[in-house]
Structures are given as C-alpha cells and as structure tokens.
C-alpha cells in the first residue's frame, strides 16, 4: 500500500537551493500532521555527498538515485529517474518546490501516473487524514482550497516562501542513504551551460528609493510622470514585467523572479497588481506603498500604505507635496 511522503531535493552547481529546505519543512510538517514518515530523494551522477547533506535532516531515509545521465538536469532524464524512484518508494504524497526546474519536468512525471500536480501551493493542512491544499489563482487575486482524488500518489509543489527553510528540522542522527541505480532512457534535450546576461547597466539593489510602475501606467508616454516623482524623491524607476516586455523600460529595471530582487527603504508600486512573481522581488522593502484603483489588488496585502485610486491623480499631487516638504 502506498505510504509516506517523498520530498524532492533540488540542486544546481553542487548546492541545494533554499526552496529545497522549504519543501523539506513542508513535508515534515505534513508528515507530523498525518503521522507519516518523510523520505527525501536526490538525483545525480556521483553526487552522494549531496545525499549525505540531506541525511542530516529529520527524514526516515534519503534515496540517492544515480545515473550518469543525471549529471546535468534535463526533463527527460529527471522524469525517468523520478518515475523509477516514485514507483519503488510508492509514497502517498510527493512534495516538490515550485521552481522553474520542477515546473519543467514534474508535469511530465505526474502524467506517467495519469495525473497532474497540485501546483504552486501556499499551504497544506490535514483534517482527519484528508489534506487540503491552498493555492493562489487569478494572478494572486484569489485563493482556492483543493483536495486530491483518491489514488496515490498525490503530487504537490509549494511556492517559494510558502514555508521557511529554517523550519526544516535536523535529525538527531544521520538518516540512512539508500543508493539506487536508476535506469534512464534516451535523453532528447541537450543543455548548454547556464549563463547570466552581461552585467546590468543599473544596479537597483543599491537604491534607497524605488518607484515601480506596472501595466496601470497604460502607455510609454506616461513614464515621464513617474520619472518626475522619482526625481523628487531621489529614487530610481523600476517596473513590473509587462512594462519591460513591451519595451517601455529596459529589462534591467524589471523587479521580480525573473528580474532583480531589491530591498530599498521605500518601494512605491504604481498600478502593479502584485502577482507573486513580482512580490518575491520586493517584499522585503522597508516601507511599501501601493497605489491601485482596485481595492482587492493583491499588492495591498503587503503594503504599509495604500491609496485606492487613480495613479494619474496621485502622482502629480505626490510629486508636488514631496517637493514642498523637501523645500
């Protein structure tokens, strides 16, 4: 019978990323609630050191699946290897971080079990053994509680930041590491080395004040308004992704999961809805101000000050008032 929780540990360039420990924390928390043990899985080629690192955490076992085709990530390789591990371990729940890598191969893995993922979850809670997962829908505007169908395994991925990596509990003694030689079929994709684009022209991480605009600004011609506010406050202009996608501002001014991560003293979000991919890039700012005509916009969830209204009315007045106060 399917039993226990399997948690996927993701690594790149010889190190686990933070979301792996968040996933472990999620699995441990759920395991405690439904009274099931947690097994961690690490995929790789000659990477048993990494498996030993995970064995320090409070898990029943670490499965280290080894194959030379797993030296580098490919969706074919990872899906094959994970399928073997899941079939062997026969868990009732598979927990993974919702990273770009997991998004790339895990739906393929789930499809081999005629399933899909309960993806990008924020929370999971068990009542009477039934786990209820909560995920955000409509770009952050609403939450949905979701339950899985009856058949094991259930595949769930958790959003970055949903659990705290420090909550991942260490064990009192190292867990057993089981090395599994897994079969991997033909790998059709060939990766080249990962790279970063040439150094950014503007380093927004150094700015104390950031004025960020989103799609609410409507047109490129309106950016001048924002520049004048930035000037009055002595800050830098930044943007949400659609503004950079449209070419209205260069990509090095994009804030978020695929842009820069900043923590200025003041972040003013103008006409930005507050999708998670944006929030991860700025939620640690000291003071957050949101201006949005939609009172339900998710950006208000993390704002210290909010103005529900038209940004075109707010910006000129704010610019003038700031100038006055600065004398």
């Amino acid at each position: 019978m399917s039993d226990g929780i399997l948690v996927f540990a993701e690594h790149r360039a010889g190190a686990f990323n933070k979301t792996t420990f968040e996933a472990i924390a999620a699995a441990q928390g759920l395991g405690a609630e439904i009274k099931k043990g947690v097994t961690a899985v690490v995929l790789g080629a000659g990477m048993s050191d990494l498996a030993n690192e995970i064995a320090a955490y409070k898990v029943e076992k670490v499965i280290y699946a080894d194959n030379e085709k797993l030296a580098e990530y490919t969706p074919d390789g990872y899906a094959d290897a994970m399928e073997r591990v899941v079939r062997a371990a026969d868990p009732q729940l598979v927990v993974m971080p919702h990273t770009y890598l997991v998004r790339d191969f895990a739906p393929k893995l789930a499809a081999r079990f005629k399933k899909d993922l309960i993806s990008d979850c924020l929370r999971a809670q068990a009542t009477n053994g039934q786990v209820v997962f909560s995920r955000r829908i409509f770009l952050g505007k609403m939450d949905a509680d979701v339950v899985a169908g009856d058949d094991a395994p259930v595949f769930a991925t958790f959003q970055s930041g949903a659990y705290r990596s420090e909550q991942a509990e260490k064990g009192s003694a190292a867990a057993e590491v089981e090395t599994m030689a897994v079969e991997v079929g033909a790998v059709r994709m060939q990766p080249e080395p990962a790279f970063q684009e040439v150094k950014q022209a503007v380093d927004l991480t150094k700015a104390d004040v950031i004025i960020a605009v989103g799609r609410g600004i409507k047109g490129q011609e309106n950016l001048a308004l924002v520049e004048s506010l930035a000037q009055a406050l002595g800050g830098e202009v930044a943007a949400s992704r659609p503004i950079c996608d449209a070419g209205w501002l260069p990509i090095d001014r994009q804030i978020g999961s695929s842009g820069q991560t900043v923590a200025p003293k003041l972040y003013i979000a103008l006409g930005i809805s507050g999708a998670i991919q944006h929030l991860v890039g700025m939620k640690n700012a000291g003071t957050i101000v949101a201006v949005n005509k939609d009172a339900e916009a998710p950006i208000f969830d993390i704002a210290d000050y909010g103005i529900v209204g038209d940004l075109f009315e707010v910006i000129p007045v704010l610019t003038e008032e700031v100038k006055k106060l600065k004398g």
Partner: peptide, 20 residues
C-alpha cells in the same frame, strides 16, 4: 486528480493604512 472545494479572497497578512 484534484478538485477545488472552495475559493475565497486571500487573507491579508499586513496591516495596511489606507489613505485618502
């Protein structure tokens, strides 16, 4: 393999001071 049981507006995590 999954079913929505309920949707709702997210709970606010921060006290926002609304101005104006």
């Amino acid at each position: 393999s999954q079913r929505i049981t309920k949707i709702y507006f997210p709970q606010k995590s921060k006290q926002t001071q609304f101005l104006g």
